[in-house]
């Protein structure tokens, strides 16, 4: 009986620490993506979209529209790589400029930028793995 109890306690501890370590790995990964994403954002996006993600007038759209980012979550990778033309509505304002693409960014770079953008400027949309980016990028039109 006593042995059983010790065994049970041991198992519980082992199990919870396993879960704990998994969570830690995700949160470490998240932080890694976020930090790298910030650097990539500064080098590739910030000129137009601004350090605060507010864009500039109606020349460059802001990145503060959480519902736009959420609705187009699967398209973000393609927009970052190939750019975008035509009219987009962000915060219910029309923007019709040309966004240049970033062909030199690898899948993982794009995932990192997405993690940074979708978790900054008032957005809180969690992790986006490089595998997600890979899958989304295959579907680019």
């Amino acid at each position: 009986m006593r042995n059983k109890l010790i065994y049970f306690i041991f198992l519980t501890i082992a199990f919870t620490s396993m879960i704990q370590s998994c969570q830690n790995e995700t949160s470490i990964n998240f932080k890694r993506y976020y930090v790298n994403g910030k650097r990539l954002y500064e080098n590739n996006c910030q000129n137009c979209h601004g350090s605060d993600g507010k864009g500039l007038g109606t020349l460059y759209p802001p990145l503060t529209d959480s519902s736009y980012l959420n609705l187009n979550r699967n398209k973000l990778a393609c927009i970052i790589r190939n750019g975008q033309t035509g009219t987009v509505r962000v915060n219910n304002i029309a923007y019709d400029g040309i966004m240049p693409g970033n062909q030199t960014l690898a899948d993982i770079d794009i995932a990192q930028v997405i993690v940074y953008i979708t978790n900054s400027f008032g957005n809180k949309q969690g992790f986006y793995d490089s595998e997600f980016a890979k899958n989304d990028l295959v579907k680019c039109k």
Binding site: N47, C48, G50, L56, Y60
Partner: peptide, 15 residues
Amino acid sequence: TSCNTICPIMHRNML
């Protein structure tokens, strides 16, 4: 107008 390097930063500041 199509410059995406320093111009947006300049005109954000000029504004």
